[in-house]
Amino acid sequence: MSGLAPRSRRALGRELTRLAQASVAESLAHSAQRPEPSMETARIGFTGAPGAGKSTLISRLARLRLAACRDQGGVAILGIDPTSPLTGGSILGDRIRMDAIANEPELYIRSLASRSSNDGLADNVLDLLVTVESYGFREVLLETVGVGQAEHAIRHSVDTLVMVLQPNAGDAIQAMKSGVLELADIYVINKADLPGAKKSASEIRGIVQRSQAAWRAPVIEISQQHGEGLAKLDSAISEHLAWQAEHRNASETLRRRRHYHVQSLIVRRVAELLDHRPQLLDTTNLAESYAEILQLLASDAKRYSRQEETGW
C-alpha cells in the first residue's frame, strides 16, 4: 500500500485540528515538545485575489509535483479559506476544485479556516506546517486566503512563493509598481484564455525586470485549457527551490520564520485578552488600556520565561 496508512491519516487529521484550534497558551505548550523543523520538505505558497484560480491551478500542478516525488513521501496541500467575522463559520471551498486529484493515495489535502488570522493565513499555521512535514511529505503546497497584505505573512512561511494574477488585474499591477507586491518568486498570469492576458504579462515583466533581486522572477501565462504554461510553472518551481538551496542562509530563514511566529502569537494573545476582558477598554484614556494589557502580558511572561528554548 502506498501513501499514508489509514491510521496515520486519522492521526494527522486529528493533530491538525487540535493545533488549528489551539489558543496561544496551548500552542506554546505544544512548541516545547515539537520536533525541530527539518527544512527537508519544500514549502510552496500560492497567493493572489480570491477567484484568481489558485485552487484550480494547485490541483493541476499537484499532479505534476506528485509524479516527481511519489516515492519520496508525496505531496500535502493546505488550503485556507476565510472565516466569517459575523458567524465564525466558513465554507472551505478549495478542495472542491481539487476533485480530479483527490483520489491519489500519496496526496493529502486539508482545508483550514483562517479563524482569527487576518493576514491571509490561519492561526498557528507554522505549527500546522511543521506537523504535516513530520509525516514525511516531500512537498507542501499552501494556498492563502489572498486578501490585502497576505503576501508578507506567507513570504516568511514558505520557500517558494507563487503569485497568481488574473488578466487585467489593474489593482495588483498598480500595487506592484509602487513596490508593495514585489515579494513573489514566480508570477502567474492565470486564465490566459481570457482577453488582456498578454498585456498584463508584459506589464508585470516590465516591473520584474527592473528588480534588483538576485533571483529573476519568471512571469508565466497559464490557462486551464492548455498544458504548456503549467509545465513551465512546474519547472520554474523546481529551479527556484534548487537556486534557493544553494543561495539561502538557512539560519536566516529560520530567524525570519520565528520573527513572524512570535509576532503573530503576541498579536493573537492581545486579541484573546481583549475578548475575555472587554473591560480593559473601559478606561479614560488609551495609554491606560495599553498599560493594563502590558501588565497582563507581563504576568504571562513570568509563566513562559522559565520554559526551555525550542528550535524556532
Binding site: 472565516t83 466569517s84 458567524t87 465564525g88 463559520g89 466558513s90 465554507i91 472551505l92 478542495r95 482545508s111 479556516a113
Partner: peptide, 8 residues
C-alpha cells in the same frame, strides 16, 4: 456555516 461551523 451561518451557525458557525466550518463546512466542506
Amino acid at each position: 456555516r451561518d451557525a458557525g461551523a466550518d463546512v466542506i
